[in-house]
Design a protein around this nucleic acid. Structure first.
Lengths: 257, 257
DNA sequence: ACAAAAGTGTTCCCCCTACACCCATGC
DNA sequence: GCATGGGTGTAGGGGGAACACTTTTGT
């Protein structure tokens, strides 16, 4: 018997239409209240979390599979997504509680056997606007929630390694990918952008120099508005100049933060 | 009937012991006579080349699979190897000549069917000492040879994309990976190192400034020897100071070449 | 001796760092 | 008024770019 809400997602396709032993996992990053966040799913009956994942159809790319996963877990389309590494330790699926949960969720026979194998997984990281994503659990999870990146928690299987590797990839690509543009809302302030950079890099930056440096790249458009209702001097609002941002990233943002 | 020299390589394992629809491809780089080289395999009956590849056993990681491939194609162990991307276009295996060659090589029935599917492949790049590698063709290739990176040739399937992406990855990681150490022989000169950097970056660098910059990193050990039998002033020989090199790469070599 | 390549020294200038200072807002 | 955070200006130094100059080798 197949559970009404299937782990094979909204496709409703039989497992023959999926590539066996291959999965995608998406580390979804968001940014809110000065904190870098990750979208995680909580396993039922355990204080253990997992990274959203899914399987790859025979007629789609791994990117398209990750897109599906992202849409199902956040309601968002056209999300910024990058593969960063493959995880393929033969014993990475040795995690008995998960199989137990899968069977308790109503999977058995052929489907359970299909799931209970060694999987090679493609790690993606996704950058989303925190304010627009709607965390939604999958068929075997109890809850979906944003968690602070540096708030430690127990993750199943090798998901801690996947998360840490994603963070490192994010850090390394900060000067080459439109990370700010995808993690911040349409309008934002320079101090907000700085907080984001600090969260990703894990270190404090000089306020004054950050402003000059960001301005020198000419990647921001001044909206001639100021944030209202805020204590102290109201910061200016900006949006990204998409064209210049893309152009500047091609060269890399002069590294050295 | 299975050909005596199997595409399933030296493992001699039946195809049930491999993960279906998953392969690894290794872009093997070398450096010789001022040129960046790639190890390629020539298909029989066609003027088309391919990147060395192989399949993944149920009890090994993709890295171990790539190691096997590397050993079989070059005779080298402990090769520097990095995965850089997954290629998963559903139609990437639509290349009729290959299947023809496979059948002509003696594969049929279950084995041919196993091979004649859509494969998702993990792209690796490998850096080897040109002077120590022994190019060796696989079961379906006519010849194995080093080719100049910028000497265009026809590559099967999406192997041109894989090669170009590997080159780009190499370029981007030049300041973060011990690329020089793995592509050059034990002893080398600074001008040789410069030629390597120029080949990877695809642009000329200033001789004088390159020297100063490399020295400032303190990653070289002066061997107090000079190249002999060479026209003009004999350049000094150096080897890498592995410890300092590793340390310097952690921070990144100040980018900006 | 001369050509060609290795290696050193020097100047200029840009950009990064570091702060000092001014501005705006809530209490 | 005062504390707090946003934003601008400026002085100083390190290092990269450009190039003159010296050294070494084969022919």
């Amino acid at each position: 018997m197949t559970p009404e809400k299937s782990i094979f997602e909204a496709t409703g396709k039989p497992l023959q239409e999926y590539i066996p032993q291959l999965s995608v996992d998406c580390v979804v990053f968001g940014f809110h209240t000065r904190q870098l966040k990750v979208l995680l799913l909580k396993l039922p009956f355990h204080d253990v979390w997992s990274i959203p994942g899914g399987y790859v159809l025979q007629d789609e790319t791994v990117e398209q599979a990750a897109d599906r996963v992202l849409f199902e877990r956040t309601g968002l389309k056209d999300v910024f997504l990058r593969q960063f590494r493959i995880f393929s330790a033969p014993d990475r699926n040795d995690f008995p509680p998960l199989m137990e949960i899968i069977r308790q969720s109503g999977y058995s026979g052929e489907q359970a056997d299909w799931l209970d194998r060694r999987f090679v997984t493609v790690g993606f990281y996704a950058l989303v606007d925190y304010t627009r994503a709607v965390p939604t659990p999958d068929a075997v999870s109890e809850e979906s929630a944003w968690r602070d990146v540096d708030m430690p928690c127990s993750l199943m299987m090798d998901h801690r390694l996947i998360l840490d590797t994603a963070l490192e990839a994010l850090r390394l690509q900060l000067n080459y990918q439109p990370i700010g543009m995808n993690l911040l809302p349409e309008k934002f302030t320079i101090p907000e952008l700085q907080r984001l950079y600090e969260a990703i890099l894990g270190k404090k930056l000089d306020r004054r120099n950050f402003q000059r440096k960001i301005h020198s790249y000419k990647i921001l458009t001044d909206l001639n508005e100021r944030l209202s209702g805020v204590a102290h001097k109201a910061p200016s609002l900006y949006s990204f100049n998409k064209e210049n941002y893309t152009k500047a990233l091609k060269e890399g943002l002069n590294a050295g933060w």
